[in-house]
Amino acid sequence: MISVSNLSKSYNGVTVLNIESLDIPAGESFGLVGNNGAGKTTFFSLLLDLIQPSSGYIKNKNIIVSESEEWKPFTSSFIDESFLIGYLTAEEYFYFIGDLRGQTKADVDEFLKQYEDFFNDEILQKKKYLRDLSKGNQKKAGIIAALIGKPDVVILDEPFANLDPTTQIRLKKIIKDLDENTGTTILISSHDLIHVTEVCKRIVVLDKGETVKDIQTSQATLEELEAYFNK
């Protein structure tokens, strides 16, 4: 689904990302871990064509993302709060995203029903603008909005940060559901090794812009990761 070749990004001569090749097959749940500055967000930004690669390219379903916009209809993401429109209510935001993804208002309402638990009564009909919600609740709205319209590729940057424990557990369930019951390719970055090993079938560790580990998740993965980061 996603293939990376000779991708690099440097700022003023300092290389912040350098991935020779990486293939993520369709339907995989892919986890990206690494310390601050490892290049996780840079990678996602390149994948979304928000920054230009210094060399190489990323293909999303055989479309080179920096050359064509055709990947947009089937790709969806939530990176940070700048993906929210602060002056909209949550409903208005969901309908707006729905509009962009060819979903009617009724479709969106129907879709949102399955996430009532996840929202925990803190998102819908709150009569508040998104900018006035707490960080955690903003994140909830952003993550769910990224799932509207059955995208083939979903990209979430640090989805577990800022969420309360109950919501984290519910989010894990949502991601696992998505992974097992649909063909969605899911890309997640996280600082939480436990969560990421739990929901991702494959984990790649980035360090200073390079891939240092590429693991198919198993019982031993968490230990392996902990050992690696405990350096």
């Binding site: 979304l48 928000l50 916009e69 947009k72 209809p73 990176i79 700048s82 993906f83 429109i85 602060g86």
Partner: peptide
């Protein structure tokens, strides 16, 4: 500008 990244990565012509 506050949500420009969203507009640039969403399905928006």
């Amino acid at each position: 500008s506050e949500y420009y990244k969203l507009l640039m990565s969403q399905n928006i012509p």
